[in-house]
């Protein structure tokens, strides 16, 4: 770990100012991923600007009936909020399915969204990786890639995004609020993360110095039910092999509103817009769900050892949607 300076500003403007003028600087939230990467030599900031104590620790209802979550709110705090559990249960479920209680107690909402891939090559500075060292190559394509992407990858990178929370937020049409030297801006969560293309070192569309201040959830869709399910090797404390977050509203047996997002399939939470469009106005049946998801996954380009993710994602999604469509069959509100 390289030496670094440490600053803990008391307001966002100072934090942004500190980072804007320092190209080698990074924000420090809970540190559960950044400190890990610094120890591995993957991240080597020369200045850490601690934003974990900035006044972004509120979870509050918005005027429009949505929810605004400060970026410094700890994962466990958010998961435990009654308002979240009742109105956005998949946020709580997704959070609680990830990491461990200790990590959730430290990790912040903003940091969770900005955590980096767990691709083994990315984490090993002794090996090439285009995300870590642009132009050095991607050995994962031919190497060890069981956990890696089947959607939206490029020849330069097949990393997946590891967040569970981001998958739930993608299905909920969340907005991300940012601030930078140029002022505040907002963008949909689904537009925060980038696909690798030929710039895999850029995980997100954030500019240097831009800071996540909050995540905002629109009001829950009335009468819609939602669920988050995750498949993994270990029963707890493991990243997803694949996960799905779904929101479904059925009227008269027909799909009236549907949101599907996959985790662990791509470099960003994967909103299944093709499947959603295919389902709208269709009967809420297992067959229809299967056909729609197949259309989405037709874009999959699996590698030698991760082809299982196609049937896994399909079956997860169909199973979750089918449960949600059956009012008393174990699906959730």
């Amino acid at each position: 770990m390289k030496e670094f300076r440490y600053e803990r500003p008391t307001d966002a403007d100072s934090a942004v100012a500190l980072l804007t003028d320092a190209p080698g600087a990074a924000y420090l939230g809970g540190g559960t991923n950044l400190v890990d990467l610094m120890k591995l030599g993957v991240a080597a900031p020369d200045l850490l600007v601690d934003v974990s104590r900035l006044p972004f620790e509120e979870v509050e209802e918005t005027d429009g009936g949505g929810l605004r979550v400060g970026a410094a709110v700890r994962n466990s705090t958010l998961a435990a909020r009654r308002m979240v559990r009742e109105r956005y249960p998949i946020v709580s479920e997704a959070l609680l399915s990830g990491a461990s209680a200790q990590l959730r107690n430290a990790a912040t909402v903003g940091g969770n969204l900005l955590q980096r891939t767990r691709c083994l090559y990315f984490q090993d500075v002794g090996k090439p990786c285009n995300k870590r060292r642009p132009g050095s190559g991607c050995p994962a394509r031919e190497g060890v890639h069981r956990d890696l992407a089947i959607l939206g990858a490029s020849e330069h990178c097949v990393a997946t995004h590891p967040s569970d929370l981001a998958v739930a937020l993608a299905a909920l049409d969340a907005m991300v609020h940012l601030v930078s030297a140029a002022g505040p801006r907002s963008l949909p969560l689904t537009e925060l993360h980038r696909l690798p293309g030929d710039e895999p070192h850029r995980d997100t569309v954030l500019r240097h110095g831009e800071l996540i201040t909050a995540v905002e959830l629109p009001p829950p869709v009335p009468e819609a039910r939602s669920a988050y399910r995750k498949a993994r090797d270990r029963a707890s404390y493991a990243f997803a092999l694949a996960s799905v977050a779904a929101v479904l509203q059925v009227r008269g047996g027909m799909v009236h509103h549907v949101r599907i997002a996959f985790g662990a399939l791509a470099a960003r939470p994967w909103r299944a817009r093709t499947a959603e469009e295919a389902l709208l106005g269709q009967p809420a049946t297992e067959e229809a769900f299967g056909e729609a998801v197949d259309r989405e996954l037709a874009a999959a380009r699996p590698l030698r050892d991760n082809g299982y993710k196609v049937p896994l994602a399909r079956r997860l999604a169909v199973s979750v949607l089918t449960d949600l469509a059956a009012p008393d069959a174990g699906g959730q509100r």
Partner: peptide
């Protein structure tokens, strides 16, 4: 840490 369980290996002392 302030009553909450955390992994002390990932917290910087300075913070």
């Amino acid at each position: 840490l302030d009553g909450r369980r955390v992994n002390s290996c990932l917290l910087l002392a300075v913070a």
